[in-house]
Design a protein around this nucleic acid. Structure first.
Lengths: 293, 293
DNA sequence: ATCATTATAACAATAAACGATAAAGTGCCT
DNA sequence: AGGCACTTTATCGTTTATTGTTATAATGAT
């Protein structure tokens, strides 16, 4: 059918710019290179490179074939490295970035588990709430709560991350449970700097409920701390507070007439041909740990 | 190196469940099948199938290799069909879905152009503002303005789609230009049903400006019509009104102290191994037509 | 237990690949 | 313009690998 060594040779020919040098790089005689290329061309039924004795030029067919050839070789490399990684675990450096809170609570434990299971795996974790150019930083995968900004990236949804109205039990005991959107005015609402309203789903329609409170903070982390301290109601995402909910340090407050608008957790990937298996395993593990219990 | 015919043979062996039947299907002698499989196994250095004389069983290595083998064959098929499609154009049925307004204004023209250039190409366009299960519907690509809901999908950002405050020239002549967020109260703001506020970026922070007006509508299309008719200010997305802006039927209204929060246009794809080239071409064309002029 | 079927080992026949030599062609330099 | 250095490829003889045939061990069903 088709020999991948011919395809690989085609790629080296293109990068070398000459059949002979490609042969020298691959340890083949110029004759052999010429024959292999001719075989590949008859196999495909098209002429891939227009060659004179002194210059090589990709034909338009060759141009279309080159990325496909590289995809084929990538698939093959993925296959052979899969076995090496099966034998001795994942390897390489897993470079990822995540928001502070979710990173600490969710991502780092998953990374730790993965590293324990794969002695050859290294990791490079950047926790940041800012937006990072993951292509420029050479990042394998970014975990995001907001959808991605930059183009030429790919986003995969990992799990829902519903926003929840929550408060500490102590606060609710002293101030009572809010029942409706209207009640919110009688409560201490903790907001992010510059956020003047909370988004709710009310009668299947999205509304922005204006919110005012005495305490506002610059990060979700600070907001959560204030909420734990009983300073009032906060609108936080589920995965930020899942541990607090489990311990009973925070409880969810549900309103009769509205639900907070939901968010989601995303994995943002650079558009590479094939994602390394360490990334694939990481996403799989993270997904598994995100099964809402 | 590695022969793809061996890889293909491995797949047929797995589906056939026997070396001999795989040989009969492929027109090879049982001996040849046995040898090729052995060659592939020594090539990979692992045993792919555990075989007795009467039964075959995939080893765990075989299980890991099978999807990779199919990926390799997919890559090869994509390569060979690429030439056929280069010769006689794209083929197959391009199934896509898009929101009503953007679909009419942007997507359908691109589809039409693609079909004119590719006589063998068929298309199946579903314009809908609702959320469609693109996997169940067998859709190749969905164009969305809001980020995707379902998991197990992949999103690619095509272009920014900034929201713009706009109005008809006649309206602005009679009512004047609003200069700041505060001015908005003196203007007729056209809103979607259930939307009580507009999101702005004010001092680098996102705020929800409460909005009230005498006219609200259920769709962006209706809102646009009202805006064209001079009924007031509307917050519409750039690609919904790009033609109106070009003709001068609508003009953008910029505020000194705030900018509307931007949206984006996304292509949502089912997580297939390889996207068909008709989809790749469509996305490329659509991206090209989305270069904001 | 027997039989039919299967996987594979051994060996011969065949086909394909390879290397060396040679020839033709092209760009560069003088 | 012409020679030179280098490259591509054709030819042919040899080597290598692959295929087919026959045969053998093994396994599940009857």
């Amino acid at each position: 059918m088709m020999d991948l060594s011919d395809v690989a040779l085609f790629c080296t020919i293109v990068s070398a710019g000459s059949l002979s040098t490609a042969g020298r790089q691959s340890g083949l005689s110029p004759m052999a290179v010429s024959r292999r290329l001719a075989a590949l061309e008859t196999e495909l039924g098209v002429r891939l490179v227009h060659r004179t004795t002194r210059s090589l030029a990709l034909t338009s067919d060759g141009e279309t074939f080159l990325p496909l050839a590289q995809a084929m070789l990538d698939a093959k490399d993925a296959a052979v490295t899969a076995f090496a990684e099966r034998a001795e675990g994942l390897s390489g450096v897993l470079k990822l970035t995540a928001p502070n809170v979710i990173g600490r609570a969710l991502v780092v434990p998953v990374v730790a588990r993965l590293m324990a299971a794969n002695p050859l795996l290294q990791a490079d974790v950047t926790l940041s709430d800012g937006i990072i150019d993951i292509v420029a930083a050479g990042i394998d995968v970014a975990i995001r709560v907001a959808p991605l900004q930059a183009s030429e990236l790919i986003a995969v949804k990992l799990a829902d991350n519903p926003r929840m109205l929550c408060a500490s039990p102590v606060y609710l005991k002293t101030h009572g449970d809010p029942q409706t959107l209207g009640n919110l005015d009688n409560h201490a609402c903790l907001t992010l700097h510059g956020i003047g309203s909370w988004l709710f789903l009310h009668n299947a329609q999205q509304i922005a409920r204006p919110i005012s409170g005495r305490l506002s903070a610059s990060s979700a982390d600070a907001l959560r701390a204030a909420c734990l301290a009983g300073s009032g109601l906060a609108l936080l995402t589920y995965w930020d507070i899942v541990d607090d909910l489990a311990r009973g340090d925070l409880v969810e407050v549900t309103l009769q007439d509205a639900d907070p608008v939901s968010l989601a957790i995303w994995a943002v990937l650079p558009t590479r041909r094939h994602m390394p298996s360490r990334v694939r395993s990481f996403i799989k593990e993270l997904r598994a740990s995100l099964v809402r219990s």
